[in-house]
Design a protein around this nucleic acid. Structure first.
Lengths: 125, 125
DNA sequence: GTCTATTACTTCCCATTGGGAAGTAGCTTG
DNA sequence: CAAGCTACTTCCCAATGGGAAGTAATAGAC
């Protein structure tokens, strides 16, 4: 079952093919901030500021970029409530919710296995 | 009980904490080429050239970088067979094999859901 | 003995991206 | 009328990504 994406319209897709749109989506999701943002949004809609505090160390610029990219691919929705101090909420679309599953698995794996990776824990030992 | 990684020795790790070594590992794995390389190596040890052909579009420089980083974290092993034309094999460590599981899930998700994502609407930078 | 092929990389150099600091907009409170 | 709030931009620089081409060592062809 070989599959080169560009040739067939509904051929099964292959992330290993350079021209497959899968690549773009993989590149979007296989990203530190994307994985973190999607995970944070599983607890329901969140505002920009909340996300920024959760994703410790992210700058507003990079958060905006990440969020807008995810929005462009239909992973999340951006809702603006016209209000005096701006009020914007981000929430996962159904697609985003299903993407959260493998992403959760990845984040959990990292937390559970960091002790087994080499240049890790600066913790005293 | 919240967990900031640097404080406790065996405190549960948190990828959301900026200082947690988890971040580094997440950044390593949440990467296009890493995810692809680890997936490719599930079929057993592979040589550099084989990997380069599988990961369509990767340049030797970037492949080397990716592979060396994964090796440094104990995700994979690099074995050199002293031979006339160089012969180097890469293989997953047990840690790498367990990392392959969530990474497979992510790659599969991408291939199965690309049709539901809005393809490549360019996001202004 | 020189030429060519093979394999697994480096090195160079440039374009894109990541990232911090600070500025912006609009209204509301003191 | 300056300060503050929220959600961003903009500026600027450093790190990373990525392609093209070069390198090393030797076997085999000619």
């Amino acid at each position: 079952m070989t599959a080169s994406c560009p040739s067939g319209q509904h051929a099964h897709h292959d992330v290993y093919a350079a021209q497959c749109p899968c690549r773009t989506l993989l590149d979007l999701l296989a990203n530190k901030w994307s994985a973190l943002a999607i995970g944070a949004l599983e607890n329901g809609p969140q505002r920009f500021g909340e996300l920024q505090r959760k994703l410790q160390g992210v700058s507003p610029k990079v958060l905006t970029q990440t969020l807008r990219r995810l929005e462009a691919f239909g992973i999340l929705d951006r809702t603006v409530y016209p209000a005096v101090p701006p009020h914007v909420e981000y929430s996962l679309t159904p697609l985003g919710q299903s993407a959260a599953i493998p992403l959760n698995a990845l984040r959990s794996w990292v937390e559970e296995n960091i002790d087994h990776a080499f240049p890790a824990a600066p913790v005293a030992g």
